[in-house]
């Protein structure tokens, strides 16, 4: 591997750079006023429910310190649940409870917490300790995702999720983000998670990328990353495409999880999705985006319904279609 790649080759592969993303996609297609829709996870959840998109069930919200006494009532009979800040970023401030033990709670790490320290955590969230800019926040208590057994072998703690970049309502590229020991159970690539590219046609994973290096085996478990078939890929893509209508953001990152019992759930949306997805798929976004632009004839809002857009992505962006194009 050379220690750098020429701009010419990057352009040939259609790789989108940071400047291009900021100037062409985010500044042009993402109206500032719509940002609160994705930055506040409560609003996102409500919009998704209204549109009939499945999300992790919300058990309750705590907005003021006075309401913390309702915590026990909200938690109710649930044995496992997640507490997280509504404006959190980078997976900070999330407390995952996986079970109960004689009136105490057990965290995903195995640590035991009592009700009081759980209340303290909520209080910290309310004071803005985990939110962007430190403004006062709300705490959400919601369903804990039981991820699909197919990911058992390739994740280390945490929940793997599927990041899809949606351009003007069309899914363009996707990757599975697998938590590692490095990433501390979080699914962010810059924190050390593995990203594995997905063939848009079949929903099968390809090789992965970890710390900007291309890898084939999970760094912690040693299991192969490629060749995992994501069940219900068509439905999943349609779901991702449908998230465009929720927000009106033309360049959008959709994070979905695959629940063992409930199927694909929408976890959160991102108005400034990063560019690592290109590394995970070994290809740039540029050529696919050009195809979408050609299809919509430059209009910024799609006319086709979500399912049709997903189908367009499946037929045009699959590995097979790429092989057909380059004989």
């Amino acid at each position: 591997m050379k220690w750098f790649i020429s701009p010419k080759e990057l352009r040939r592969r259609g790789v989108v750079g940071m400047n291009q993303r900021n100037a062409w996609f985010i500044a042009e297609l993402n109206p500032r006023r719509n940002y609160p829709l994705v930055d506040d996870k409560l609003i996102t959840k409500k919009l998704a429910l209204d549109a009939g998109i499945a999300v992790p069930e919300l058990y309750g919200v705590i907005e003021t310190n006075h309401d913390i006494r309702n915590l026990a009532r909200i938690v109710g009979k649930h044995d496992d649940f997640v507490i997280k800040p509504a404006h959190g970023s980078g997976g900070n401030g999330i407390m995952v409870i996986v079970g109960r033990m004689r009136g105490h709670f057990r965290k995903a790490s195995g640590q035991i917490v009592d009700q009081a320290s759980m209340a303290h955590h909520v209080s910290n969230i309310l004071s803005g300790m985990h939110s962007l800019g430190g403004q006062p926040d709300k705490a959400m208590i919601e369903y804990r995702v039981h991820f699909h057994p197919m990911f058992e072998e390739v994740s280390f703690q945490g929940v793997p999720d599927i990041r899809t970049v949606v351009y003007k309502g069309y899914p363009v590229m996707a990757m599975v983000r697998l938590p590692t020991r490095d990433s501390d159970g979080k699914a962010n690539l810059h924190q050390g998670a593995v990203g594995a590219g997905i063939d848009m046609g079949s929903g099968r994973t390809e090789h992965g990328v970890w710390h900007n290096q291309i890898i084939d085996l999970h760094p912690d478990t040693g299991a192969p990353i490629s060749g995992l078939e994501i069940p219900g890929w068509d439905r999943l893509l349609a779901l991702a495409a449908g998230c465009y209508e929720l927000t009106g953001l033309g360049y959008l990152g959709v994070d979905l999880v695959l629940d063992r019992d409930r199927g694909p759930l929408m976890l959160e949306l991102n108005a400034r999705p990063g560019l690592a997805v290109q590394l995970a798929n070994s290809i740039g976004l540029g050529h696919r985006i050009a195809m979408i632009d050609a299809g919509t004839e430059g209009a910024n809002t799609p006319t086709a319904p979500a399912a049709e857009r997903a189908a367009f992505a499946q037929t045009h962006f699959s590995a097979e279609a790429a092989r057909r194009r380059t004989p």
């Binding site: 591997m1 750098f4 790649i5 020429s6 080759e9 750079g17 400047n19 291009q20 070994s282």
Partner: peptide, 22 residues
């Protein structure tokens, strides 16, 4: 209005070089 690549991106995406054709 510069929307080209940053020099640092030539390093960041270097893993793409030489991996098949798009």
């Amino acid at each position: 209005r510069y929307t080209g690549y940053r020099l640092s991106e030539l390093l960041r995406f270097r893993a793409l070089s030489g991996r098949g054709n798009p």
